[in-house]
Nucleic acid binder design. Structure first.
Lengths: 196, 196
DNA sequence: ACTAGAACCGAACGGGCGTTCAATTCCAAG
DNA sequence: CTTGGAATTGAACGCCCGTTCGGTTCTAGT
């Protein structure tokens, strides 16, 4: 038996990506073997190489897909207009988007060190583009005299760190639901920029 | 040549710990081999087992030492008294302490998943004890009507995430020095708790 | 000077790693 | 009904892993 009945790349490919993402998030890139991923999908290790040229590309592809998705999703969610309203939208967007993809977030933020130089350059550029989003909002807010921060860049990084931190403790069946969490953080964000 | 002249456990032990910490931080626990650590110290891999029973204990020991050090250092730095002043002190303490030990911080925060259950329990307990510090300050501040937050626990986690995030971008030779960074974050923290 | 043990070397153990490849079976198109 | 390529197996490659251990040299205490 070499080609099992029912085998289909259209079905297997997404399962490979999902298994890799889940395992990378749970154990870390270096601690996950190709054989583990294959076992989770239910195929042999060799068959993985129909879907990726190598393990490194598998990781880089997951990270790139996630980061590009975030950027596109924010483009769609960005209301434009007044900086304070945009800040509010950004806070709720970031929390909501990241809560739904904890594994992808974990991998994209923690496995940068596992990337080879070429891949690192690409991923790092995408990450910076996203970090520029809050920074731009704060810059506009400060320029209009509606926000006050000691340093726009630092405040932007602080905001992202604070928001991404939600993923370390949030549980779907926990004490607070997503909307409530969004409200709490939106209020803290307003305070951070001197508009509490 | 089996025992080189000048060899001394009093000298070698700290070098082993330092090498392990540096390499674990740079590449991750799973990606670092005992041979790499030994090579950095300049000894054979087998000699490492004079200083640790195994690789896992080496990691757990580093994490535990760091977390215990943080707790003791805060006990010494805590001014007590008014919540707003304590919050200010905590912000500057956390940033200053973590900036000086980026490797230890990185390992302690990112390698939790590499810990076996017994070690995880110990480390997690220490981590929670530290997380209780800002939470306690905020609770006091809210009780005295000097702070307003949507949720004490969430605000505490947000504060720690924001502060620890400094390590991702801070460079000693960068645009801002430590004191300036401390000021900027202290101001944001005041704003977060509704006392901007 | 002698000795006990500390510090280390270097080889070895079984096992898992990422990756390749010939062989095999299934399926869709003609 | 035939056929060609898509999907997969399973064995194999060389390499590195964490850990153990017998042997060797150095050093500190007597």
């Amino acid at each position: 038996m070499a080609r099992p009945s029912g085998s289909d790349a259209g079905v297997t490919r997404p399962r490979v990506l999902a298994a890799a993402e889940r395992l990378f998030a749970a154990h870390g890139y270096a601690a996950v073997s190709m054989r583990m991923i294959a076992a989770e999908v239910g195929i042999g290790a060799g068959a993985l190489y129909h879907y990726t040229p190598d393990k490194q590309t598998l990781l880089a592809g997951l990270m790139r897909a996630h980061l590009e998705e975030v950027l596109i999703a924010w483009q769609a969610a960005d209301p434009g207009g007044a900086p304070m309203a945009r800040l509010d939208s950004f806070v709720r967007f970031h929390i909501g988007f990241h809560i739904e993809r904890p594994d992808a977030v974990f991998v994209a933020y923690m496995e940068l060190r596992a990337l080879e130089p070429d891949n690192f350059t690409v991923i790092e550029a995408l990450r910076r583009r996203y970090e520029a989003v809050p920074e731009g909002i704060l810059r506009d807010g400060v320029a209009l005299g509606q926000m006050q921060v000691g340093d726009v860049r630092v405040a932007g990084m602080a905001l992202i760190a604070m928001l991404t931190g939600v993923n370390t403790w949030f549980r779907e069946d926990g004490r607070l639901d997503r909307d409530r969490v969004g409200e709490i953080y939106a209020a803290m964000a307003r305070g951070m920029v001197g508009a509490g």
